[in-house]
Amino acid sequence: MTMDRPLALFAALSGAMAVALGAFAAHGAGPQMKSLLTTGAHYQGLHAVFALVCASAGRPALVGIAGWAGAAGGLIFALALSAIAVLDLSAIGVVAPVGGLLMIAGWLILAVAILRPAPHQS
């Protein structure tokens, strides 16, 4: 089994960012920012783990695509919510659904990969 190292690295760095974002939400953010930052950190952290599992699966390329979609979606979603909360850029709110769609796509792509028959090994 081989690991998708670039995806695993992206997942690890995304997970670290999610923890930092969550810590800021818990200890440095005002009450109005806290909810947005906590939500972003939650989804980013969840999808960092999702990507790490996909990177470790050693399965077809479709699993890697699922991992990248989920991890990128989590990052985009978290960054959009952070920009709204910290920089007061409410206009960036239109970007958050792109992240959400990528997260959903990652899960659906993974489901397709699981349902596909395994290639025959000789």
Rank of each mutant, 00 (worst) to 15 (best):
P97R: 01
G67E: 00
A96M: 07
K34A: 11
G67L: 02
I114M: 14
V94R: 13
L87T: 03
G15P: 09
T39Y: 00
G99L: 02
A69V: 05
G40D: 07
S14A: 15
G93S: 06
P60C: 15
L37R: 00
G28H: 12
M33P: 09
A113P: 03
A16G: 15
A8Q: 12
P97F: 03
G45D: 00
G64N: 12
I104Q: 04
A80L: 05
L79V: 07
G22I: 02
P117S: 14
L101R: 11
M1Y: 11
P97W: 02
G93V: 01
V19R: 06
G58S: 09
D88T: 09
A105R: 06
H47S: 10
G58R: 10
A55P: 13
L115F: 12
A18Y: 02
I104C: 09
A66M: 03
S35T: 14
T39D: 01
G67P: 02
A111N: 08
V112K: 14
F50W: 06
G73V: 01
I109R: 12
L46R: 11
L46K: 11
A48K: 11
I104L: 15
W107L: 06
G45C: 01
G100V: 02
R5S: 06
A96Q: 03
G70R: 00
V86P: 00
A51Y: 07
A78F: 03
A26M: 13
A71V: 13
A85T: 08
F50T: 03
T2M: 11
L36E: 00
A61M: 07
P60Y: 13
A69Q: 05
I104R: 09
A29H: 01
A48C: 12
